[in-house]
């Protein structure tokens, strides 16, 4: 039953996209759909067609594209069947550029100053090497946050993602106390979003719109996965630090490069954070050896960004 629903949705989506694509190739893509009652305003807007051609359209004919059918709340809670998402973070490539953070914050309406990804300056002991460590939700297989949530507002999906239902969250912040990775942030104030954004229905897959008095954190971007794309942090990082994939397919990719997950972890001695707590994270780290950048450079980039 469920699969049937999915295929119908997919069919509708493909059809919709195809129509749009065909429409964009003709000279005046909107003529066919033009409502005769719409009077041209005379003001032309330049658009880019899917072929890369620049086209001009009268502003009056522009209509907002209907939203793609969003997944139901139940589907968003269940997750993708047969998937097991995993992320690998290569510490040897990170120089604290924070492109991941700004992309993530932008896409998820995270309050300025907070971050679902935080890049920590790590130094395990006085005489060990410092390194930059992007930290995000570990999507643990034994998530301490899910255990303590009193109202099932944070939950574990079958694809391994730990997600949040901001329509359910009561804002007790027990999950924040329980999370040993400090991965969770709270909407202390009214989110800085437009009224139109705030009026959208909440989705556990986009984790937006942000709502005051609720907890937020990295969601592994299942909405992007549904579109066949990579999470925002992965695509935003110019150094390919983040690799995302499916454990069942044994593949992770940062876009340009794709690796066998098991081989990558084996070859580079991948590890997880705070293994002794038994949380079983789904985020793996590759040690900061043979680095692409010296550690100090991270401070320069951070300072440069602050200055900018």
């Amino acid at each position: 039953m469920k699969e049937k629903d999915n295929s119908r949705r997919q069919f509708l989506t493909t059809g919709l996209l195809a129509t749009l694509a065909i429409g964009c190739t003709s000279e005046d893509p909107f003529t066919a759909a033009v409502d005769a009652s719409v009077e041209p305003s005379g003001e032309k807007v330049k658009l880019l067609s899917v072929d890369g051609e620049e086209i001009e359209v009268d502003r009056a004919f522009l209509k907002p594209v209907p939203h793609m059918p969003s997944v139901s709340a139940l589907e968003a809670r269940a997750g993708f069947p047969g998937k097991k998402f995993v992320m690998v973070i290569d510490l040897s490539r990170c120089k604290n550029l924070k492109k991941c953070q700004s992309a993530c914050n932008h896409m998820h309406q995270v309050h300025p100053g907070q971050g679902w990804i935080q890049i920590h300056a790590m130094q395990d002991a006085a005489n060990t090497a410092p390194y930059w460590q992007p930290s995000l939700c570990m999507h643990c297989d034994e998530p301490p946050c899910v255990k303590v949530c009193p109202v099932d507002a944070t939950f574990k999906r079958q694809d391994g993602i730990v997600a949040i239902d901001s329509d359910r969250c009561v804002g007790c912040r027990f999950c924040m106390a329980a999370c040993p990775y400090s991965a969770r942030v709270f909407n202390w104030e009214k989110p800085l979003i437009t009224e139109v954004q705030a009026a959208q229905p909440y989705s556990c897959e986009t984790s937006t719109p942000q709502k005051i008095g609720t907890v937020g954190k990295c969601d592994f971007c299942p909405d992007m996965v549904r579109k066949g794309e990579l999470p925002h942090c992965v695509t935003a990082c110019p150094n390919g630090v983040f690799m995302f994939g499916d454990m069942n397919e044994d593949t992770v990719t940062n876009g340009p490069e794709t690796f066998r997950f098991s081989e990558l972890i084996k070859d580079k001695a991948g590890y997880r954070l705070m293994e002794d707590l038994g949380t079983k994270p789904n985020v793996y780290y590759l040690p900061p050896v043979n680095r692409n950048f010296p550690f100090e450079e991270g401070y320069n980039t951070a300072a440069a960004q602050k200055g900018a």
Partner: peptide, 26 residues
């Protein structure tokens, strides 16, 4: 007072999950 969403206080009864120590406390 400490709750971020006091308007959802009743969720603790409606959606309460027994494994959470908060529910034991309630």
């Amino acid at each position: 007072v400490d709750m971020g969403r006091p308007d959802r206080f009743l969720y603790v009864m409606i959606h309460g999950r027994l494994q959470s120590p908060i529910i034991w406390d309630v």
